[in-house]
Amino acid sequence: MTVQTRIIFAICYIILAPFVIGLLDGFDRKVSARMQGRKGPSVLQPFYDLKKLFEKEFLTANKAQLFMVKSYLCFILLSGVLFFAGFDLLMVVFSLSTAAMFLVLASTSTHSPYSSQGTHRELVQMMACEPMELLVAVGFYLAMGTFKVSEIAVNSKLGVMYLPGFLVGFIFILTIKFRKSPFDISTSHHAHQEVIKGVTAEMVGKEYAYVTLAEWYENAILYGIIGLFFINSNPLSIIGVVVAILCVWFLEILIDNTSARVKWQLMLKLAWGVTIVAAGMNLFLLEMIKG
């Protein structure tokens, strides 16, 4: 890939990601509503929500929170740029976990019992997901011989052929990452699951808007990683990528609407268990084949 295309990809990410993911979120609400026998809001509702949040009066329990929330958004953006400009996948994962740390610090800076509870659950969620995220990078390195996203994307091999276990494990932790039931432990998109908004409990107005925006940008990276499993040097593979992403998107909605929240202990055990079994086995077999 040339430098120009990589720059274009990065710029496209910064401009388009919120629109695409926001729209997916809007359709998500629509589909969820239909599953529950409701009509559901307009597909543009997420954007209306975001606009309204930005216009609200700025209330805060600790002023330091705002700059940490902004830093969280910036770091997510940085990780996304690293990913879509085709840099090292492992670095993207490291950068994402640094970003998450800012969210944690923002939320605990208020000395609020509810956000503190949410934060620690968020930490558990991060701990549950991180091994799998790192392993995905490892898997691509084993299969393609490189950590670089730009080289993985134009490889002649199709990632999913070599890394089915990694894909299963990654889709599993996506439920946690997208804050979908049954693993929406630190905060939830559903009012009936969550009395107080967990890790975002003390974030009001524009602070919450920034967090929502950051979440969209992060989801774009995660969908991008799903896409990486299905892309190769053949331009037609783009169709496969889109189909795969939509399938995963629908699957997550289905899981979200058919399960009830579990305790964090169970989440941690399940996430690690699936990681070890699915990704671990796949890793072992790949190493065997490689010799």
Partner: peptide, 10 residues
């Protein structure tokens, strides 16, 4: 940033 100082939710 102008903002209203509030106490946390309990």
């Amino acid at each position: 940033q102008k903002g209203k100082q509030v106490i946390t939710y309990m």
